[in-house]
């Protein structure tokens, strides 16, 4: 059993208090919403135990700072997700056409794209968006570069054009 190292964005003990309360409130709301049982002491007690366990694990992993980033980023995702969804739908149809083409016109290539995002969460969102879009898969995120495997030239050009990068950047630092 090993403790994870503290992330660079670790907070002091004073700052984590409100975040942990927000985490408890969110988890309690989700539990009550999904279980739909409000009069069984056993079930409610088990829910309380689960919430306590999750909070303990989050503290132990030193990942409370990411929870903070999640609360500030959450509302901004609302404008990003529809755009990402439409990109995914378009890319899905392109890849489906390639697969159903009898000639199978693929031209796989490996490209390296810069990752200018500041926070870990921003980088993860960018890499996950690339993987989620069919036709491109992020292979390795190391330092400030991201290795991307693309199925076709068009897919690679789509990543290199940098529109997704700009949108993730804007979401990370609005102004």
């Amino acid at each position: 059993m090993y403790d994870l190292p503290p992330s660079p964005q670790s907070l002091s003990g004073k700052e984590t208090g409100p975040l942990l309360i927000a985490l408890v409130v969110t988890l309690s709301a989700l539990w009550l919403l999904w279980s739909g049982i409000y009069d069984n002491t056993l079930i409610l007690g088990l829910g309380a135990c689960s919430i306590a366990f999750v909070v303990w694990m989050t503290r132990r992993m030193h990942r409370v700072a990411e929870a903070k980033a999640g609360y500030t980023l959450g509302p901004r995702l609302i404008t990003y997700l529809p755009w990402l969804g439409w990109e995914i739908v378009k890319a899905n149809f392109q890849v489906a056409r390639i697969i159903l083409d009898p000639k199978l016109p693929i031209s796989p290539r490996l490209i390296r794209v810069p990752v200018p995002q500041q926070t870990d969460l921003g980088r993860v969102i960018y890499a996950n968006s690339i993987t989620l879009t069919p036709g491109t898969v992020s292979l390795d995120l190391r330092g400030d570069g991201l290795l991307v495997h693309a199925l076709t030239h068009e897919a690679a050009e789509g990543v290199l054009s940098g529109e997704m990068e700009r949108r993730v950047n804007r979401m990370e630092r609005p102004s």
């Binding site: 899905n92 890849v95 697969i99 199978l104 693929i106 069919p134 898969v137």
Partner: peptide, 24 residues
């Protein structure tokens, strides 16, 4: 997506086909 995983030639290209059932 499954047909694509059958047809595509290597592991990395197959992952592209595997994202089809996962997303759309």
């Amino acid at each position: 997506g499954a047909v694509g995983m059958l047809r595509l030639p290597d592991f990395y290209t197959r992952t592209h086909a595997a994202t089809l059932p996962d997303t759309l």
